[in-house]
């Protein structure tokens, strides 16, 4: 049983990026999946950037103050909005995937997507407005 034949095809080598992100003609669920992967990659990169930025603190208040000034720049705030989208989407879809993945409400996975991602989008819009207003 353990030795199933691999599906390797020398003529058409596996192309993960195309396989994950080519959503042409695909369903909502694949879109959800692709977006989940994309936000996961984005959030991982952010995490490392975040740690790098925090390490500025080690160099004393000057470097940090410079960074804070930069962070208030509107272009930077736009990046915050992108980040917020990544967080809320990944969280909402993650809850759906976790529930469905344990066999909870799995036959209603599309409705779950609409409800959870709908709530996430509302939170995103409110958050995005607050980022610019506050």
């Amino acid at each position: 049983m353990d030795n199933i034949q691999p599906t390797t095809d020398p003529v058409r080598p596996k192309a993960p990026l195309r396989s994950w992100f080519d959503v042409r003609g695909r369903s909502l669920s694949t879109l959800a999946f692709a977006l989940n992967r994309l936000t996961a990659i984005g959030l991982t990169i952010y995490l490392f950037l975040h740690l790098a930025v925090l390490s500025l603190l080690l160099r004393g208040p000057e470097g940090w103050d410079q960074f804070v000034a930069l962070a208030k720049n509107p272009a930077f705030l736009l990046l915050d909005v992108v980040l917020l989208f990544g967080v809320v989407y990944h969280m909402a879809n993650g809850i759906r995937v976790a529930l469905v993945g344990m066999g909870v409400a799995h036959t209603r996975q599309k409705s779950l997507f609409y409800v959870l991602v709908g709530i996430a989008l509302v939170a995103f819009v409110v958050g995005a407005v607050l980022i610019f207003v506050e």
């Binding site: 369903s27 669920s29 959800a32 999946f33 989940n36 995937v97 469905v100 993945g101 996975q109």
Partner: peptide
């Protein structure tokens, strides 16, 4: 499986 559900479709 990563719950893409393309198989269902």
């Amino acid at each position: 499986c990563h719950v893409a559900y393309e198989c269902n479709e």
